[in-house]
């Protein structure tokens, strides 16, 4: 069956070029954000966990940063450009940095802000790295204040708009 063997060989050779390259290990492009809302103080805090190599790919496209800016500053600027919390009126909550911490392969970036009005009407948008990776998934978990327990979770993928936090 020379014909059979030839056909099989041609298919095998073609497959090397046709199958998508997976030379790099199959990555999961995911960020995890834990949001804590303090109802008594009317504040919201978000801690974004992002893989540093993914973040570097996103920051490579970043504009308006000075070469002298530190990783912490650039990371916070990048997060603030793609992550937003809005109040009941749809007005963005002004977020300020509350620290950056490196944890092995990840950077934990903390931002927080004061929320005027009904805190239960907050909405959130998280398009972090969606412009870089087509399979990017951003998880936002809402933690109950003071307990660290999570109940509600919101997922964001490319093209998603703002979603209610509660």
């Amino acid at each position: 069956m020379n014909v059979t063997r030839s056909v099989v060989a041609i298919i095998a050779a073609a497959a090397i070029y046709l199958v998508p390259g997976a030379a790099d290990a199959h990555p999961l492009h995911t960020t995890l954000t834990e949001v804590t809302v303090d109802r008594s103080r009317h504040t919201v805090r978000a801690v974004v966990r992002v893989f540093i190599d993914d973040l570097s790919a996103g920051m490579a496209r970043q504009r308006g940063v000075a070469p002298s800016d530190s990783l912490d500053v650039r990371a916070t600027m990048y997060i603030e450009s793609s992550f937003a919390i809005a109040d009941a009126a749809g007005k963005p909550v002004a977020l300020r940095s509350c620290g950056v911490r490196k944890n092995h392969e990840l950077l934990w970036v903390c931002v927080e802000g004061a929320v005027p009005g009904d805190i239960r009407a907050l909405s959130i948008k998280n398009s972090l790295l969606c412009d870089v990776f087509s399979d990017q998934v951003n998880i936002v978990n809402l933690l109950a204040f003071g307990t660290g327990q999570s109940g509600r979770s919101v997922l964001f993928t490319k093209g998603d708009r703002a979603k209610p936090l509660f």
């Binding site: 399979d135 998880i139 109940g151 997922l155």
Partner: peptide, 14 residues
């Protein structure tokens, strides 16, 4: 969605 559904979604998508 609840948190467990999020992680099921993540594994499935992966």
């Amino acid at each position: 969605m609840n948190e467990i559904a999020t992680y099921i979604h993540l594994g499935f998508r992966h």
